[in-house]
Amino acid sequence: MSAQAETPFPPGALEREAETADTRRRWLLSLPAIAIIVCAAAGPLLVMVIYSFLTPGDYGNVKWEFSLEGWMNTIVQRDIFDDTLIWADAHLSIFWRSFSLSLITTILTLIIGVPTAWFVATQPPGRREFWLFLVTVPFWTNLLVRTIAIQELIRSEGVINLVLLKIGIIDEPLQMMFTDFAIGFGMTYVYLPLMVLPVYAAVDKLDFRLVEAAHDLYASRWTAFRRVILPLIKPGIIAGSILVFVPCLGAYVTPRVLGGGKNLMFGNLIELQFGAGRNWPLGAALSLMLMAAVMVALIFYVRITSREKADG
C-alpha cells in the first residue's frame, strides 16, 4: 500500500495515547486503596519478615541483632539433637491439633453442609432467597457472639448439661469446655456457612436435565448422586472445604474462648509469643509459617476455581 502520509498522526499513536491515559487514570483511582492496604496490611507483613530474623528483647519487642533463633525455634522441633526438645513437643502438638481439628471441622461441615446446600438450592425460587438468607445471617453476625453462644451451650451449667442431667443420662455435668471437642464443635458451628455457600452456588448451577438423563438411563437416586451429581458439584465442594479449612487453621477467637489456656491452636501459639512468651522473632516466624500454609491452600483453591471457570 502507499504511504499513510495523510494521516494526522503516526499509526497507532491515538490508541497508545488513549491507553496510556486510561492506565494512568486507573492507577490514580486505585491509589487510595493501595496506599491504605500497603500501610496497614501488606507492608507490615514485610516488616514482620525482618523481625523474624532479629533477637528477642528482654521485655518483649526485639533487639536489632541478626539471629536465626526465631526460625530455629519453630523448625527445631524435628531436630532431636537440640536441647530445646521440650518446647518442640509443645509446638508439635499444637501444629497437630491445628491441623487435625481443621480437618475434622472441614469433614463435619461437609457432612452437614452439602445436604443443606442441596436443600436450599432445590427450593422453589421464591423460598430459596429466604433459606439463603438464613444461611447468610450467621455468616455476617459477630464471630465472637456466635462463639459465646456455643459457650453458653456447652458450659458445665450450660443448656446441654442441664437437659442431660434432667433426663438422667448423666449424674454430673460433662466437662466439654476447654477441650479439643469444644474447639472443633465451635469451629464447625462458626464456619458452616462458608461450606454451604459455595456448595449452594455449585448446585444452583447444576443442569438438572443431566440428573434426569441419569435416571432415564436406569440410575437409582444414589447412583445418580454418586456418578453424576457429585462429580459436577465437586468444584464447589472443594472450594467450600478450603474456605473452611483455611480460617480454621488460623483461628484465634474460637480456640481462645472455648479451648482455654491449655488447648492452644496455631493462632494462640503466635499470640503467646507476643504476650507471656516475649519472643517476637519466634512469633513472627510462626506467623509467616501459618501464612505460607494458608497461601498453599489458597493457591490450590484459585487453581481449582479457575479451572472450573474454564470448564463452564
Binding site: 499513510q4 495523510e6 494521516t7 494526522p8 498522526f9 499509526p11 497507532g12 491515538l14 490508541e15 495515547e17 488513549a18
Partner: peptide, 17 residues
C-alpha cells in the same frame, strides 16, 4: 474509539482527537 490509522473529518475539520 480512536482509529489506528487514517483521519476522520467533519466537513474539513479533523476530529480524530
Amino acid at each position: 474509539e480512536p482509529p489506528t490509522m487514517g483521519a476522520i473529518r467533519l466537513g474539513t475539520r479533523d476530529i480524530s482527537r
